[in-house]
Simulated scan of single mutants.
Amino acid sequence: MEFVPEEGKLPNKDCSTLLLPALSIGNVGQLAVDLLVSSTRAERIGYLDDLFVLPCVGNDAYGPIPCGDLALPLEAYESSSNALTLVQQRSPVMKGMLVDFAKHLANFASTTGKKHVVLLSSLDFGRWQKIDMSSGPQIYYLSSVNPDGTDHHCEQFGWKRLQEYDPAQRCWKYLSSLAEENSMRDNNLPFDDELEEEDYYPSLPFAAVFSCLKAKGLKVTCLLCYCSEGDNIPDAFNLAEAACKLLGLSPRNFHGDESGNWLIPFSWKTVYGPPPDLSIF
């Protein structure tokens, strides 16, 4: 993975926290990063070039005027006032190359001096075992602070550790071994269509990135929410707000509008296409 800086721009060493999405159902992590980039008015400092990320290109996601700035698969932004680096990922990783990509990402975080990595992702609502919506949408977390994934700081917000995380379970253990480069790939592990219920979570992108970051000795916190495909903008707000709580940030201190509210990304105006033609009703 190569970091290609914008002309005349260099990464700020004081931005020691890295925040990025892990692709999953509903693209909630990506939407949350969009919201944070827009609301903090983070400045694009360059992009990441990786062989294992599928190519894509589009118009600027945050500017209202088509000025020729292209959106690329992996972009790096900085909000110096919040000591925050944000990476937005807009296209998936090539099949079978997820761990290799995660290692590249971990190397980038390590070599650029990041001390804390916050990973935002979503989980399939259909696999939620203990549904309790009495307190509204819930945030789950997974942390590298303790071997069992717990973190007292996260618990203070009322979040629950992802119960399905078991470092002794075969796929979690194998993933950790790959991240630490202690084993070759095991062809005896099940194929995607043979995965059991307990294998679902370690098969997701966030698990590979978490394992590789942890193997580098970095502090990493995964913030997760359950969702279904559809309008996931409310889930994105929920996840972005959780990230702010974790990092001690507030939208009122961002460079948004005068009310201190979130600044909606311009690209969200067409995220679900144009409105329906009313003449059909």
Rank of each mutant, 00 (worst) to 15 (best):
M184D: 15
L10I: 13
Y140N: 09
V87T: 12
S183E: 15
S228N: 15
G26W: 01
G8A: 08
R41N: 13
K103A: 01
G149L: 11
F191C: 11
N232H: 11
H255F: 14
L98T: 14
N232V: 11
H153P: 00
E164N: 11
G136R: 09
G63L: 15
G256D: 06
R252Q: 13
S211D: 08
Q30H: 04
D193C: 13
S16A: 10
P251G: 04
H153Y: 04
D124K: 01
E75V: 07
L119K: 03
Q169N: 14
G273C: 04
K95M: 11
L72H: 10
A240M: 03
G217H: 05
S79C: 13
D14R: 12
M97G: 00
L223C: 07
E198Y: 10
Y272W: 10
F191L: 14
A42T: 05
A22N: 02
Q163R: 15
K219W: 03
Y77E: 04
P73I: 08
L178K: 06
P276W: 05
Y140T: 12
N187P: 09
T270W: 10
L98Q: 12
P147N: 11
N27Y: 05
E75M: 15
F254H: 02
G248I: 10
R252A: 05
F52N: 14
L239F: 01
N182P: 00
P205C: 04
L10S: 15
S143G: 08
S80W: 01
R44L: 01
D34E: 09
L224M: 14
D186E: 00
A71E: 07
S39R: 05
L20A: 06
N82P: 00
L18T: 00
F210Q: 09
A168L: 15
Y47E: 07
A168W: 07
L218V: 12
M184L: 15
L162Q: 07
Q129R: 12
E197G: 09
Q163F: 11
R252M: 08
D132T: 07
N182W: 08
V271W: 09
L218H: 05
P64V: 00
L51F: 10
L105N: 01
D14T: 12
S176P: 01
W172K: 06
T221G: 07
S176Q: 13
S135K: 15
T17W: 00
L86W: 00
P66T: 07
P234Q: 13
F157S: 04
C227S: 14
S250M: 05
G58Y: 08
Y200M: 14
